[in-house]
Structure formats: C-alpha cells, structure tokens
Amino acid sequence: MEATKRHFFSDMGAMLGRSMRHITRSMDTIITVTIIPIAMMLLFVYVFGGAIQAGTDNYVNYLLPGIMLMAIASGTAYTAFRLFLDMQRGIFERFHSMPIERSTVLWGHVLTSLVSNTISVVVILLVALIMGFRSSAGVLSWLTVAGILALFTLALTWIAVIPGLTAKSVDGASAFSYPLLFLPFISSAFVPTESMPPIVRAFAENQPVTSIVEAIRALLSSQPVGNNLWIALVWCLGIHLVAYVFAMWIYRHKAA
C-alpha cells in the first residue's frame, strides 16, 4: 500500500496517444507548417534562383536542407501552442493530481512534435523530388541525415517547451519561433557565405544552421562531410541539453 509503482512507459503511451490524436485531427497544422517552406522553395528556385550564384547546377539540391530546417522551426511552434493550451485549461491539473509519471506530460508533447515534423519533412521532400531534387546518397547517409534532423527537432522542441510553459498569451507562446525562422537566411542555406560582408559572414559561418545545412548537403550529395557533421551534432546536442534542463526546471517549478 505504501509503495507507489512507476509506470513511465505506459503513461508515456497514453500521453503520446492523446497528442497524436491532436495531430491527426488537425492535419491543417501540418499543411500550415509545410506551406511556407514549400512556397519559399518555389520562390527561391523559380524566381530568385536564376540570379543566385550558388556554384551548383541543381539549386533545389542546394536549397533543400535549409528549407527542411525552416519547416522544423515553424513546426515546433505548435508544441509551444499546444502546451500553452494545456496549461490554460484544467487538464494539466488533472494529470498532476493523478498518480502518473509527471514528466510524461511533457515527453508526450515532445515525441508528438518529432512525429509531426517527420511528416512535414517527408511532404517537403516529396515536393522537392517533383521540383528536380536528386540525391546519390546511400542508406547510411540518409539515416545520418534523418538522425541530424531528429536531433535538431528535439532540440528546438525543448526550446519550444519553455515559452509553452511560461507564456502569458497564445501569441507569446509561439512567437519564439520567428527568430528561428530567420536564422536560415543568415546562413549558407540559401546562398554561399562567401558573398556576405565580413561581420555577417562571421556570424553566418559560426551559427548552428550553417554547419547543420552543410552537413546535410554534403551527405545528400555524397561529398565528404568533414568537420561539419561533428559541429552540427555538437550544436544539436548542446542546445538540446541546455533547453531540456531549463524546460524541466521550469516545469518542476510550475508543477510545485
């Protein structure tokens, strides 16, 4: 009677089942998440593309990694949004007054973000294929790309958890993603950094998006990846760790 059993995985399953239903019943969120990156891809390939000197004959190949990161950045805003709504309504309090593993309340949202962002990335990949994206990468390279994207998603999702838990309004909850959407522009995602003025270039070359984009690009075109892969992984893991610790601290604080 005294001992209370922990049920991390079954609680997790129930939470995941719940928020996955939220995703499948609001497919419009996936469309919203993918439509802007797809529009960007069309715009850059068919409008600006002719004037951009990216040193490649297939600009879709060049552009795709950055577009995928943008989609993920805007996709994670929905995690903040859903979390905020949960906080607003009584459902969080109900969960917290029940004998469940509390952290699964957050993990359910985070894993759901991983699944829904995977769907968006696949949709974008399909559109890119239609637009002429081609890759010579083998299975291992593809798996590495998937791994980087998954880590990137988790890192951004844990960042999203923070405003989700602390925001005062719905708009505030998802506003954090706007600067993240801009980062790809000041990176090598759309144009090579060599053309940028020194200060901008220094920023662009040392921010996470560039190394992640370069690593994915190299992997997809079967080029040597070099250090970029490790730099990208360190960025993703580092952001993930810091955001996770911070988010969990806020969560414990809020949930008393």
Partner: peptide
C-alpha cells in the same frame, strides 16, 4: 480532482477522454 474549469480534452471524444484517464490510472 475536478477543478473549476472542466478538465477535459476538447479534441478527443468523450469515450477517448475516459479511456485515457483509465489508462493513466493503470
């Protein structure tokens, strides 16, 4: 606990809400 504001999940059905709680109570 039944809080001041109905603590139900709006996107789920009534049945799914109850099943979810039953699962969480193992």
């Amino acid at each position: 606990l039944t809080g001041q504001f109905a603590a139900v999940d709006e996107i789920l059905t009534g049945r799914e809400n109850l099943i979810m709680i039953a699962k969480l109570r193992h």
